[in-house]
Write a protein that binds this DNA or RNA. Sequence first.
DNA 1: GTCTATAGCCCGATAGAC
DNA 2: GTCTATCGGGCTATAGAC
Lengths: 192, 192
Amino acid sequence: MSSRDQLTGAMADLLWERGYAATSPRDVMARAGVGQGSMYHHFSGKHELAVEALSAVVGEVMGESSLLQGEGSPLERMKRYLSAPRPGTQGCRVGRMTQDPQVVSDPDLLSIVSGAFEAMLGRWEETITAAIEAGELPRSTDPAELARTLAAVIQGGYVLARAGGDQGPMDAAIRGAVALLDAAHASVRADR
Amino acid sequence: MSSRDQLTGAMADLLWERGYAATSPRDVMARAGVGQGSMYHHFSGKHELAVEALSAVVGEVMGESSLLQGEGSPLERMKRYLSAPRPGTQGCRVGRMTQDPQVVSDPDLLSIVSGAFEAMLGRWEETITAAIEAGELPRSTDPAELARTLAAVIQGGYVLARAGGDQGPMDAAIRGAVALLDAAHASVRADR
DNA sequence: GTCTATAGCCCGATAGAC
DNA sequence: GTCTATCGGGCTATAGAC
């Protein structure tokens, strides 16, 4: 693996573990096992390194969201994606960046994060629309709103897990959301 | 206002705006308008100052949650609290701390945050239990789970708002959650 | 209780040899 | 492409006068 890849990988890890402000180029170099000159040869500095690292992370995470698009009925896929295992106490590698002031105030980094959320919300909306078409959710459902609600449950689940230092609250939040979807499903059948 | 209060107030603001790592004692002193000796007279250092500032913030925020306990039926109170105005793009003054690695790895700071969330979730559970008793939510509802789901929607709403630099996604997430609660309410009536 | 001066360290970045 | 040496500056904290 090249020094360049070592560096972006180390930066991605440290952004997750410590945040932008608390991650120094020295830390990154040490973890990557390369010297200082090497880092400044490949990157103009900490900022550019963060941009590349975060872009790579977003690419990975978006790949994982393909769970929303596999087999099963739309509602089944929604529930499966919600219930997929997540490292609650570690936080979301993308969502956590939104609470890092230095990331949000940096247009380059922010646009990477906001792009990821837009793409994710788009996938949610598609799947929710399909669920409505399939008669699995009420016609009155607003796909854009429900997409944001469910994305928020996941992101908020991370917050609860980190607050408690325990995966439990996040899993409970997800189960509660699934129960609400089931209730909405039930209300469709009641209408027929 | 005493120098001490000026200092805790400035620290609270800066924790919110910049996070723990990016806030230096110098910044705090400058905003508080006091000198260095004054700060180290009242506090042992940055850490103790953060502990007092965060405790004060938690006290304030918990006071605001009295919306859950005022007039109206339990479900009305839940919807009212969910829909209360919040500064989405600025983030939650308490919840954002859970995504700050330096806060979570500090037992003193973490216990303040986790205590706030436990208290908040307790209030949610009480209100949800009352809503079930009142026949506003299905008997099958798990109060602990739904409490975490709704707290997660709010916290996740902040994440979406900061990701987009726009209050809109957070408001949409809240409206989607209210719609799900309405659907759950409707399913109770359908059972009767 | 508040101030200024200063310590010792690490920050992010650059220079220049190899 | 990678290394070591070094810069100027900010960091958290302490010392000691007033």
